[in-house]
Amino acid sequence: MDFLLENIITGLSIGSILLLIALGLAIIYGTMGVINMAHGEFVMLGAYATWAMNAFLGVGFLASLIVVFLGVACLGYLVERGVIRFLYRRPLDTILATWGVGVMLQQIVRLIAGGELRYVEMPPALSGTVSVLGITVSGYRVFVFLFVLALFAATWYLMYRTAFGTKLRAVVQNREIASCFGINSSRIYSLTFAYGAGLAGLAGALVAPLKSVSPEMGTTYVVDAFFVVVLGGVQSIFGTVASAFVLGEATGMLAFLWNDTIAKALVLLGIMILIRFRPQGLFTSKARR
């Protein structure tokens, strides 16, 4: 029984990291229909920003989270204003353009910071272990789990309980009509993109102490994030949550029973079969326009 509980907790932890990385992408993809291939690079930038602040300015880990969020959000804002807003009617071109932005960010970081792996220290207060229902769990993983839940709650509040969220949902339903009612839709889009990018930056900062920091780290994360969003269904942030934890549990269990290579293959296979029969994703009732 112990090992079952242990694996459920592991699955929750994997799921929380997946959700953390996918949340920003889900918002951008779900509301704006933009497939942001540079998402992984925003994650990477968040990790590098944390590293740089820690290494050069001596800023503590938790304090740097706020700066990272705002910094990457600003960059996202600029990318939307500079590139993406010209391409809303050409979805295929946004893939190419955001991919290009991603490649450029990756190389810029490589040129400035170098290509070697970088080290972000785990906050000493969180580097111990805690006991959850009798199972020893990494304190930092628990922290990430709680942080992600808080982040999700904040996002939900922003989307469903604020004037900004109401306007955003109106624009998503019908951009032209919303504009007729006086909503500045291009500003809403810019801010949404910035918010999504900021979340990606936070994700990078939070995974950095647990994993490694390199210019190419975004590549694997963007793939995982797309799995989550595609499986959960676009336009549904609850779907994203559910799918992140489903994938987390499935990966954790399969990896425990066989190994991580097989787990990855089986999960991919499962997603392919699901997409064949439910192209709109698991957790939405209506298909995307």
Binding site: F3, E6, N7, T10, S13, I14, I17, S212, F256, A263
Partner: peptide, 10 residues
């Protein structure tokens, strides 16, 4: 390039 080792650690 794998970076999630919690199942391995279990």
């Amino acid at each position: 390039g794998h970076s999630e080792f919690s199942s391995v650690i279990n």
